[in-house]
Amino acid sequence: MASLDALLDPVLDAAYGLALRLTRDRADAEDLVQDAVLQALKGFGTFDQQLPFKPWFFRVLVNCYRGRHRKSTREVATLPLEDASELYLFERTAGLGWHGGPDDPAVTFMDRMTAEAVGAALDALPESYRVVAVLYFYQDLSYAAIAEQLGIPVGTVRSRLHRARAMLQRRLWQIAEESGLIDRAAAGGES
């Protein structure tokens, strides 16, 4: 039977990443992971070791986040709720002439983006969209499982996630332009 120490070690980086995206603050993220470890210590006896540990621990972490978030009214500035087209980056990269060649244009674009830039783009989404998107990107869960974790209807997860992905594409493009990773003139100067 594996110890909690042994199970935690390989998932700690991902747990911190999830916590960082949920809290958008390094110190808060560390505190959140610490809370989750404390809760995991208390509930470890209920964990079925036949099942994978990471989803169980992430669920504990998300519950801790939801508990903390209910106590906090802090809200930071986010993107206005302007929708981008669903194929925003497809259309923009096509405008750069990246399509039709041997390279995958999505990979060409993302190769220019750092982990920090992608995190910043996710952080900029409005709260309710951001949390659904964070759970989607960090956990390999169905819409139904995300809905169950957040206590919201599946249809709400679906609609928020679809809009979040469109907004995320728009923000990624803006970051790429602002950082000089994309030639504004070649891209038509739109952001």
Partner: peptide
């Protein structure tokens, strides 16, 4: 591809 790459980038953040 884009979704896979976003996931891959986010996974690069270390504790």
């Amino acid at each position: 591809s884009l979704l896979r790459m976003v996931r891959e980038r986010l996974a690069r953040i270390a504790a």
